[in-house]
């Protein structure tokens, strides 16, 4: 589930507050959004790819927080890794024209 909003990366655009389908974040008066309802996170990773500065990290475990730190996420280059795998960048969609899934369906 969602574990990190990086205050150093965040530009306070509040896009995550708007796009999270489960209303996990709250905007704040001065500063980065906060994770207000963590247990509602459905671990869909969509906030990450909509974030224009790769400031969010959703850990793979859906049942509860893992406690991973921002330092580890930075060191393992995990910020923005799902967006890069898709071909999204700076919160903008891209890459679906290169999707090779049709080859998988043939193999199946």
């Amino acid at each position: 589930m969602i574990e990190i909003v990086s205050a150093t990366r965040c530009v306070e655009c509040d896009i995550c507050v708007k796009v999270c389908p489960t209303n996990v974040f709250d905007a704040t008066e001065h500063g980065a959004p906060v994770i207000a309802r963590q247990d509602d996170c459905q671990t869909c990773f969509l906030c990450e790819i909509y974030c224009p500065t790769d400031a969010l990290y959703v850990a793979e475990f859906a049942e509860g927080p893992t406690g991973i730190t921002e330092v580890e996420v930075e060191e393992r280059l995990l910020f923005g890794s799902y967006a890069r795998a898709l071909g999204w960048a700076r919160g903008k969609a891209g890459g679906s024209q290169f999707d090779p899934t049709h080859r998988i369906r043939v193999a199946q």
């Binding site: 990773f45 850990a59 793979e60 995990l78 890794s81 799902y82 795998a85 898709l86 290169f98 999707d99 090779p100 899934t101 080859r103 998988i104 193999a107």
Partner: peptide
């Protein structure tokens, strides 16, 4: 070859493995 297509075509499926 299929491994590559799976990774590129189903990137969400590989997020849990990569992060773990």
């Amino acid at each position: 070859a299929l491994q590559g297509w799976l990774r590129q075509g189903q990137p969400n499926c590989f997020v849990p493995y990569d992060r773990a």
